[in-house]
Amino acid sequence: MGLAERILQGDIRAAARLMRDVDDGFASASEELKKLYPHTGKAYLVGITGPPGAGKSTLVDQITAAYRKLGKRVGIVAVDPTSPFTGGAILGDRIRMNRHADDEGVFIRSLATRGCLGGISRSTGDVVNVMDAMGMDVIIIETVGVGQDEIDIVRMAHTTTVVMVPGLGDDIQAIKAGILEIADVFVVNKADRDGADRTVRELSAMLEMGERRNGDWLPKVMRTEASRGVGIEELVAEYENHRNYLFSSGAIERFTNEKNSAILSEMLKERLFRKVYDRILADGTYGEIVSGMATRSVDPYSAVDSIIAGHLFSIPEVSE
């Protein structure tokens, strides 16, 4: 029996292995994903992003506990950075949430970014799909600690949570473009600390400045103390509000279409590139162009023109 069939029958090891195959870029993984695809699209996806040390993992742990109380099965994808120098990684998000490890209604997977810069790994979407096919009701995706511009999560999750903590900057930081624009829910965590009121105020002021049409979603600023479980029920209730908004306003259709279009174009880009690249690498064209560029006898603009003219419509198969 293949991995996909085993996963649909509830085999945990098969699921874990397919996630690995996806992450390691095995060609066989896409065959299995094809079989799982019709079984996906049911889970509700919650994204958690914010700077390092804001308490994202602790928050995920508490949100998981809250959803478990409601009887929901929870999948967690937690992303931490890969070393740009050694390719190694320390994936430490489980430290905060491993009390759920032996709960059969929870599946946690740690992923390394492996060079991807948008706050999640290239494999995250497919790993989410595997969890979706496993029958998880809610899937929480925790990004790496982000700065200002790592916003891939917004395309992936139905509800994006931006976690902030007191004391990170003034109100000009709060009106800059980037991650502050992507939140459906803001969380000011460590709300017992000095400056929490000010952070809440500045975020709220920033939100009020924005232009909104009638019926648009207005993100709320929630206060939590994740380490003590304070504010978590309210946060999960707000997720439910946002979910209701998505479905009742019809915004879900736009979200789904944009997401699927991004997935398709990304996949197409990657596959087309690989086909052309593998081909010109194998026949030596690639190397010739690069050495030609060194002496300026070849320019990359004309080289790409000729590659595309020569190969685009009849790309020969490259044997693996």
């Binding site: 890969t82 070393s83 050694t86 390719g87 190694g88 990684a89 320390i90 994936l91 430490g92 489980r94 430290i95 491993n98 490890a101 032996d102 740690s110 390394a112």
Partner: peptide, 17 residues
């Protein structure tokens, strides 16, 4: 990590389960 492995660190006080 420095040897290029991915390390899942689960921290203190873990049960065998």
């Amino acid at each position: 990590r420095d040897a290029g492995l991915e390390v899942i660190y689960t921290g203190l006080h873990q049960t065998p389960e």
